[in-house]
Design a protein around this nucleic acid. Structure first.
Lengths: 249, 249
DNA sequence: GCAGGTTTTGCAGGTTTTTACAAGGAATGT
DNA sequence: ACATTCCTTGTAAAAACCTGCAAAACCTGC
């Protein structure tokens, strides 16, 4: 990997996550920590980030006060994303929905991963677009301002023509009896279509949404292959899903 | 292998993979690394890529290149954008391409304008998305990393089904004799399709691109309705276009 | 066609950049 | 206070770079 390329990656990571650790960068990029330190030093001199003991912080981080609850939820999504990333292998076709968890997943994609991502979520597409080795296919249609994803007949039709290896879905409610539920008719249509097309369906959700119900039924648990939460996979709340034949991570 | 041929290959590789190594190019093309270095040097001076220690990076790594940009060009684009905005009326369907001028246009849209914008440019879509009263239709297809717009048969087919009121096109070269020209085959296809579909075609360009030529022909001047530059509309350089029947602003 | 100039390329040399490792000192956390 | 982690400094080797030069290929005007 080229030096400038590496530094661009570091700057990108800092801007996304507001902090980076020298150790994790070192193992991610596979260079010595000395090199990372020298990079951070240099980028710091150029004002790209703030170097601190153990890593670096983003400039915008300075202004941020500590809203402890928000940071907590974000960390959870980060944990989920890091588990999810492990499932993606080189060359795969991956279909993703929208939502903050999916964005976090997009930000955690390793630099050397080369795969094709398909999505109608504009924020997700923007993240994929910045990744050097990922091909992006945009699902077009009318853009929903709320969810920032494209919704409509065109999007549905396009998804029906695909057979992606994986489908990552951020979900709003999951329950052992009612399966996956949601509260937006058009989004539900889209999710159903995505589930039907994909070889393997992976649901991402924070634990607080487990055993909650929303008004519209998306799919039964039988259609779900993997469920990822921030909890360890032997947590009691997850056991009913394991019993239902879902792989829990 | 000829020098120009070799350099074209290098540019192609950079656009494809976002980076190239001097060593691998040297063995691929079977010339000395010195020659590759000289090529990279030259291409870098022509702005085709960014030369770095060990190889070169594509411009999409722009994050790392330190700010030495002239505000001059940006101000010009702002002037153009403000002229262009006046053409858009409530309820119109507007098709737009990509490029920095179009982004500037997107940022200048008045808050109370309610219209429908159609685009395959991700940065433009992001801008439209933040506007309260604008409906956005995203043109989907494979995302080109360089131009950050969707390109391909799907995009072309979708545009053919539309009949937008206006089409705003950022152009790279315009000449009284050769009309509009460009340098990317796929982008040209898209622009041609956009022009053919639209009721009214409005070209945006900074004055320095007037009377320049690029290798691929997009369209004749007869297809253009309005040309917008940062110059006053009685500027001598614009008069040939007025004489050709184009409204100049 | 051919003398005189330019362009292109590879090579030899010396210089700079980049990187990993090592060892001792500073910061951090329990 | 202690162990751990992280930082600094120095070193050395590899890689990449630059400079100048000369051979080859090429244009050009007569």
């Amino acid at each position: 990997m080229l030096k400038r390329e590496r530094q661009a990656y570091i700057v990108h990571q800092v801007n996304l996550h507001n902090k980076v650790l020298s150790t994790s960068l070192s193992s991610e990029i596979d260079v010595s920590e000395d090199t990372i330190r020298r990079d951070l030093q240099e980028l710091s001199e150029n004002g790209k980030l703030i170097k601190v003991h153990g890593g670096a912080l983003s400039h915008s981080f300075h202004d941020i006060t500590y809203p402890s609850k928000k940071v907590y939820a974000k960390n959870n999504k980060r944990i989920i994303a890091e588990k999810a990333v492990k499932l993606i292998k080189d060359g795969m076709f991956v279909l993703t929905g929208g939502g903050t968890t999916i964005i976090e997943l997009a930000r955690c994609l390793p630099l050397n991963l080369s795969a094709t991502f398909i999505s109608g979520s504009i924020p997700a597409v923007v993240e994929y677009m910045h990744h050097p080795n990922i091909d992006v296919i945009v699902i077009g249609d009318k853009l929903s301002k709320n969810s920032k994803i494209t919704l409509g007949a065109d999007a549905l039709a396009r998804i029906k023509t695909l057979k992606p290896d994986l489908c990552f879905l951020g979900i709003n409610a999951i329950d052992i009896e009612h399966g996956i539920t949601d509260n937006d008719w058009d989004v539900v249509q889209l999710k159903q279509s995505m589930i039907a097309s994909s070889q393997k369906v992976i649901c991402l959700t924070i634990a607080e949404k487990i055993n909650t119900i929303q008004p519209i039924h998306v799919t039964d648990l039988s259609e779900i292959d993997i469920l990822i939460t921030e909890l360890p996979n032997d947590h009691p709340i997850l056991q009913p899903f394991v019993a239902a034949g879902i792989t829990v991570m």
